[in-house]
Computed example of a mutant assay.
Amino acid sequence: MKIATWNVNSLKVRLPQVLDWLAAQQPDVLCLQETKLTDAQFPRAEIEAAGYQVVFSGQPAYNGVAILARAPMTELERDLLADDPQKRLLAATINGVRVVNVYVPNGQAVGSEKYAYKLAWLTALRDYLADALKQHEKLVLLGDFNIAPEDRDVHDPEGLAGQVLLSEAERAAFRELTALGLCDVFRLHHQEGGLYSWWDYRAFMFRRKLGIRIDLILASPMLAGSCSSCEVDVAPRRLERPSDHAPVWAEFVV
């Protein structure tokens, strides 16, 4: 079962790239973040024509998540925080695997109101997953985490130390997720640094290979044990008008 995540930074702009990637890579599940579309605007027909069922939760101009799958999706869940207008979580069960798609808040700057919101959101996510893992032995949590788990996930850990995405409080929140038993499956197959999933549009950061790994796939123990591969596909980042994120995919024997 091939499961992928991609922050597309506007599905309206990137739809042709997404359709081409689906055709080339044939994932069983693709989770999208930052679709930036209302539900009424979502290109359901184009996705279904490509052979995928789709569920989505969006809002105008910001955020928005979607799950594309070849198989039926059941037990749908939307939203993490009550009365939160930001569309950042979407979950479904697909072929016996609980798929939780997240777009973690960026946080803007350490100490800001948005940073406090991010930490509160991560606490709520931890509590949500603690319950979900009791119900689903096979669970995968994936998406744009807006957290670089370790210094080897950052091109300049010293220069960026303490800033948003790398702060100790954010990394501690990430460790609370892994303490639940979730495993960062990319690190099962790649121990080296210098492998990233996001590159700033400015200063030719992609061309200079100066990025951060913030797009992650975490799996429950039963699922992690069957992970045969996990890769970042940098090819879409080379395209004209790309997202600033690259797709990340993992393959599981389920």
Results as ranks from 00 to 15, higher is better:
Met222Trp: 07
Ser228Asn: 02
Ala124Thr: 06
Glu231Met: 10
Tyr201His: 05
Ser220Gln: 10
Leu160Glu: 08
Pro149Tyr: 08
Val164Asn: 04
Ala124Trp: 00
Ile147Val: 15
Ala219Asp: 02
Ala224Ile: 07
Pro157Gln: 12
Asp151Asn: 15
Lys134Pro: 07
Leu165Tyr: 12
Leu165Ile: 12
Gly194Ser: 06
His190Ile: 02
Arg171Trp: 11
Gln191Leu: 09
Arg171Ile: 10
Gln163Pro: 01
Thr178His: 03
Arg207Glu: 15
Arg152Asn: 04
Ala124Cys: 00
Ala132Arg: 15
Ile212Cys: 05
Leu160Lys: 08
His189Arg: 11
Ile147Asn: 02
Arg202Val: 00
Gly143Gln: 02
Leu129Met: 11
Leu218Tyr: 06
Ala172Gln: 15
Leu119Cys: 11
Val164Ala: 07
Lys134His: 14
Ala224Pro: 05
Cys183Trp: 06
Thr178Gly: 03
Arg213Asn: 07
Lys134Thr: 15
Ala179Phe: 07
His190Val: 09
Phe174Lys: 03
Arg207Lys: 15
Ser197Cys: 07
Phe204Gln: 14
Ala203Gln: 15
Leu180Met: 08
Ile214Thr: 07
Pro157Tyr: 11
Gly225His: 02
Thr123Arg: 13
Glu113Ile: 10
Val164His: 03
Glu113Arg: 13
Arg152Pro: 04
Glu113Phe: 06
Asp144His: 11
Leu160Asn: 09
Gly107Met: 11
Gly162Trp: 03
His136Lys: 08
Gln163Trp: 05
Ser228Ala: 13
